[in-house]
Amino acid sequence: MHPASSVILFNTFSGLGFGLLFWLGMGAIVPMGSSAFIWFAIAYILAVGGLIASTFHLGHPERAIKAFSQWKTSWLSREGICAVFALIVMAIYGAGLVFFETPLALLGIIGGIASLGVVFTTSMIYAQMKTVPRWRHWTTPAMYLTLSIGGGALLSGQVLIASVLLIVGALLQVFAWMTGDTRFKASGTNMETATGLGHIGKVRAFEPPHTGTNYLMREFVHQVGRKHAEKLRIITIGLAFVLPVILLLLPFSHVLAAFAVLSHIAGVLTLRWLFFAQAEHVVGLYYGKR
């Protein structure tokens, strides 16, 4: 799959922002007054900034309002509704802290759960795709949720919870990669089922339908970065998980904490890039590619 930068930015930063909103809503940290304003501003800049970035890949972003209508079947529609609901509820909860120094605990919990709902519905957009066997697995939502609440815990300075969640995240990601590598083959879709010609013999793409490229090849057949996948996986684990945990376990300082956050963000950006670049869509088979 084509690793579109708008979608990578959205997944990374909105995930972090909603993770931070989750912990704020759950009352893990209860800042008051101007300090609350800063916390909520950070969370909203990340969450909303990511959402805005995600509209850059739309052909007609001005019609985005229509995307709230099909929640009965569409995970993208559910994600949009969940995001608006979570942002409104958390804004009210945040206003209570900033202006009245009053935590409306129940509202916070509802907003916190809705924030996780946004991350879950996002992950299901990918996990539902039967056409991309690597994504169609429980590890996809599990990874999205772990990264979001782990990153949120890291941002909100909860050393123990963040360390545990980052270690769990690293193990989960390694498991997702190892099992994901064999899932395309295991899906049973191959050139023989794609063409229905397997009963005659082995099928090979002889001539493509056109001399140039097309939308399908640009969007679904991305082979360029895969040769460095192994190295990038090691970089991902190092930056997203191992380095932040080491920095957290050192005696606390704000500089080290800031480095931990930056390292984590760089690692998650790499992880998201790999999530797309390594995902093979079955349509590539018609072109004899993956």
Partner: peptide, 25 residues
């Protein structure tokens, strides 16, 4: 009504849908 998100093309295993680069639908 199409916002050009491309998700339907992702969901199609046959490559039957193409997002028009000029019209964005």
């Amino acid at each position: 009504d199409c916002i050009g998100c491309g998700l339907c093309a992702w969901a199609c295993p046959y490559g039957a849908r193409e997002l028009d680069a000029k019209e964005g639908v």
